[in-house]
Simulated scan of single mutants.
Amino acid sequence: MTASPKEPGRRLAAVPDLDPAPNPHATQAEVEAALKDTKLAQVLYHDWEAETYDDKWHISYDERCIDYARGRFDAVAGEQPLPYERALELGCGTGFFLLNLMQGGVAKTGSVTDLSPGMVKVALRNAESLALPVDGRVADAETIPYEDNTFDLVVGHAVLHHIPDVEQALREVLRVLKPGGRFVFAGEPTTIGDFYARWLGRITWETTTRITRLSAFADWRRPQAELDESSRAAALEAVVDLHTFDPTDLEKIATAAGAVEVHAHTEEFSAALLGWPLRTIEYAVPAEKLGWNWARFGLTSWKTLTWVDEKVLRHVVPRGFFYNALITGVKPS
């Protein structure tokens, strides 16, 4: 469900109890309809994912993810006077980026918006458990339900590639920012990175599910119902992932929207080449079979390869080959 269209400067009343309820159990008819309606697909897919999303992506709200979120912010925005007074997260998901940035001293208060009611519900629940001053709305990124010059900072993680009109969304971001306010978006797939990540994921999925059909590895196979549900979600994922980005083109989009001081940064090359197969195996194999040693291996290898990417490969590999794109810009004063 989208927010109602509005004229610039017109405020939409924030009435949380009028927001739609989450729908985590879409019918087959709804799924089929979503295949032709990208915004319905966004809602169904992310409502389906909301309650398990943090576990799926190993998201936490402790030092590990605080450091990760703050590292992404600093990597693209550089040193900034902190904290910002009020921040907005666009396409908040479970609140991962904003809540960890707030804990890391980047912002004092926050607002979260997402097209998915389920994601907003979980993000607000996470904020409450962390005692963070955050409000939230179900909203379309192309028509943000806040008045002009409201926020000092707008952030998002893995959201721009879900938005049909990215330039329009960035215009809205600049509208709700105060003059001199900054936006920071991270976790966006590059065109080349997305290509090799998807192929690695497909090959790993096929290999793992074939091996676990063998009787010797039968207890390493997730129940068929869970595998079928993952395949169903993957069908919607193909609909909700609308864009990949060349970092230079992403800078051009932000500039065309009206931003200044625009800069794109990329990260994860060797880390992505290992990370995507590891994540895919986690979807196909019961968690109890992998255990703590697997999790420790995944984290240690990611940190090691990230260091290699930053200290070595960044100097020899073109930035478009890295998997993640980050973008920042400022509203003109």
Score class of each variant (00 low, 15 high):
S270L: 14
L274Q: 04
S270E: 07
V317H: 03
K289H: 13
D309P: 02
T304L: 15
E282K: 10
P318S: 11
P286A: 04
W307N: 13
L278A: 14
I281C: 14
E268C: 13
D309T: 04
P318I: 05
A271D: 03
W294I: 04
T300N: 09
L273Q: 04
T280M: 06
P277V: 10
E268N: 15
V312D: 05
V308A: 14
K289N: 11
P318K: 02
V317M: 01
S301P: 02
L313S: 06
L273A: 12
G298C: 08
S301K: 07
R279V: 02
V285M: 07
G291A: 13
K311M: 14
R279W: 06
L274D: 08
W294C: 05
A295L: 14
L313N: 07
E268L: 11
E267I: 11
T280H: 09
V316F: 13
L274I: 08
A284L: 05
E310T: 13
W292D: 00
T306M: 06
A272N: 03
E310C: 06
K311D: 15
A287C: 01
A295I: 02
W302Q: 14
A287K: 07
K311W: 14
V285E: 04
K289L: 00
K289D: 09
R279P: 03
L305R: 08
A295W: 04
E288W: 07
R319M: 11
V285K: 10
R296A: 09
A272E: 08
A271Q: 08
W294R: 01
T300R: 06
E288A: 12
K303M: 12
A295Q: 15
K303S: 13
V317W: 10
P286C: 09
W294A: 01
W307P: 00
T304E: 15
L290E: 03
